[in-house]
């Protein structure tokens, strides 16, 4: 079962999580050339903060700033955990 948070609208991003054998981050972004690495860093740090290592994460980004990416991922993580319980 996968969960998602956010939206594919300007300045926002849509993040989807689903259980997986290992950690995988797939980044689609209108600013991937300029900020792809930064987006990946924020995602991986946030996941590490929750000790999440077995998940497939897909982000569809339309220019979200770091705080938005982090917030959307936090929401998705909580929704995933709520689903597990």
């Amino acid at each position: 079962m996968n969960v998602s948070a956010g939206s594919y609208e300007s300045n926002d991003c849509l993040i989807t999580l689903e259980p997986a054998a290992e950690l995988e981050c797939i980044i689609h972004s209108v600013v991937k050339e300029q900020f792809g690495e930064q987006i990946e860093l924020v995602l991986k740090q946030t996941l590490a903060g929750h000790n999440i290592t077995h998940v497939k994460l897909v982000i569809n980004d339309k220019g979200a700033l770091d705080y938005t990416i982090k917030a959307r991922l936090e929401t998705a993580i909580r929704r995933m955990r709520d689903l597990d319980e």
Partner: peptide, 15 residues
């Protein structure tokens, strides 16, 4: 509601 709360939290934590 949870999305908005998280977003505002991270926004005000940063700025």
């Amino acid at each position: 509601k949870d999305e908005a709360r998280d977003l505002v939290y991270h926004f005000l934590s940063k700025f």
